[in-house]
Design a protein around this nucleic acid. Structure first.
Length: 390
DNA sequence: ATGTCC
């Protein structure tokens, strides 16, 4: 026989309750066969992506793959506890109070964002003067505080069930969950990388690897800055103080030591289990779970990052337009309000397009990877302003 | 996913 490539260990966390698409499993195995990949994990929200699966983590040695992180470097979830009391607010009223937040920040906020971007660029240049960013400061500033498209959202939540009353956050308050990323920056970094190196990845001990990691780390910081400003502008509109409970990236590649072996841990739609509590959101018509990770060492220190798609975006309108009007989709089974001025997105992100989050989360719990802290249900989900053109 | 490909 020919050369034996040391095969990566592939571990899929699933059971009869969660449906995994064959194509996604195929993508996981194919990706696991790339050179230098030592371990691959599929979480219960695993679904097919553009060549590489989402809801997956990969560990490699001596080499890493920017393409596995994808274009939205630094995408993640931030959870804020507001001072608003749940029995005193309505999602509909707060939606009206919020108005349209699709555009750039303005006034003092825009200036503050510009200063923050300059500081980010200065730190980047100071440490990595050989790796300029493929997006200018003006564009980066313009996107700060904007949610973006796809599966990104901002959501107002109320507590539905408390599982751990000693540690769960105050159930009388309402919570703000922000899911967004590095907007145009991450995509530009990946595009430039792929133009130069294709999908072969990078030798870790190379200048190109250092340059990519410098850009990647800046994108992580920029994505967090973006989530911070999305929350700030919403909280300002609602006139409430708030504190950030967590802010965790689920798309990144980090140096890691796994089973005594130094290498790189790629997460693509996989939530770190070694950074404190995490929030796993369902669709906008389903619950979100606050979880305390326990031991995920068998699964590359990762948890599901959401419910996971069940239907491809392009199939949603065809499957749902006979059953629902756009108007129907502006509210959910919980009676929560959906702000989405983009009709295509309204259908693509319909609750029916996603798997059952209870099954996904229970699979994590039953495997011993985490315990439940509390469950939340949406009052308002903001995707795109109502005046958005479509 | 996307200062989105025409």
């Amino acid at each position: 026989m020919g050369n034996l490539i040391p095969s990566a260990k592939v571990n899929i966390l699933a059971n009869h309750k969660v449906w995994l698409e064959d194509n996604a499993i195929q993508q996981l195995h194919t990706t696991a066969q790339l050179a230098h990949i030592r371990a691959a994990v599929g979480l219960p929200d695993l679904h097919a992506g553009r060549g590489y699966p989402i809801g997956a983590a990969f560990f490699s040695t001596e080499h890493f793959y920017p393409a596995l992180v994808g274009g939205d470097i630094g995408c993640g979830m931030a959870l804020w506890q507001t001072d608003l009391l749940r029995h005193k607010v309505s999602g509909r009223k707060l939606a009206k109070q919020l108005g349209n937040i699709d555009g750039s920040l303005s006034g003092d906020d825009l200036q503050a964002a510009a200063d923050a971007v300059q500081q980010l660029l200065a730190q980047h240049a100071l440490r990595h003067d050989y790796a300029s960013l493929p997006l200018d400061a003006h564009s980066m500033t313009a996107s700060v505080g904007t949610i973006g498209g796809g599966n990104h959202f901002a959501e107002l939540l109320q507590t539905d069930t408390v599982y751990d009353s000693d540690t769960a956050p105050d159930p009388s308050r309402v919570y703000l969950l922000v899911h967004s990323g590095s907007r145009g920056l991450g995509g530009a970094i990946l595009r430039e990388h792929v133009e130069q190196y294709g999908h072969h990845g990078l030798q870790a001990a190379s200048t190109a690897a250092s340059a990519y990691l410098a850009q990647h780390n800046t994108a992580l910081a920029y994505a967090k800055l973006n989530r911070d400003w999305i929350a700030k502008r919403i909280l300002a509109a609602w006139k409430t103080p708030a504190r950030c409970l967590l802010d965790i990236h689920h798309n990144h590649v980090l140096p890691a030591r796994i089973n005594g072996c130094d290498g790189y841990l790629h997460r693509k739609g996989a939530t770190p289990s070694d950074q404190g509590w995490v929030m796993v959101p369902g669709s906008r018509g389903d619950y979100s779970y606050l979880l305390a990770p326990t031991d995920s060492s068998e699964y590359l220190y990762s948890l599901a990052h959401g419910a996971g798609r069940k239907w491809a975006r392009q199939d949603c309108y065809g499957r749902l337009s006979g059953k629902y009007t756009a108007q129907d989709l502006h509210q959910t089974r919980f009676g929560s309000t959906v702000v989405c001025g983009d009709k295509g997105l309204l259908f693509e992100e319909a609750p029916a397009a996603y798997k059952n989050v209870d099954a996904v989360v229970m699979t994590l719990v039953e495997a011993g990877l985490c315990r439940l802290i509390a469950r939340y249900k949406p009052m308002l989900t903001y995707k795109k302003g109502d005046s958005a053109c479509c």
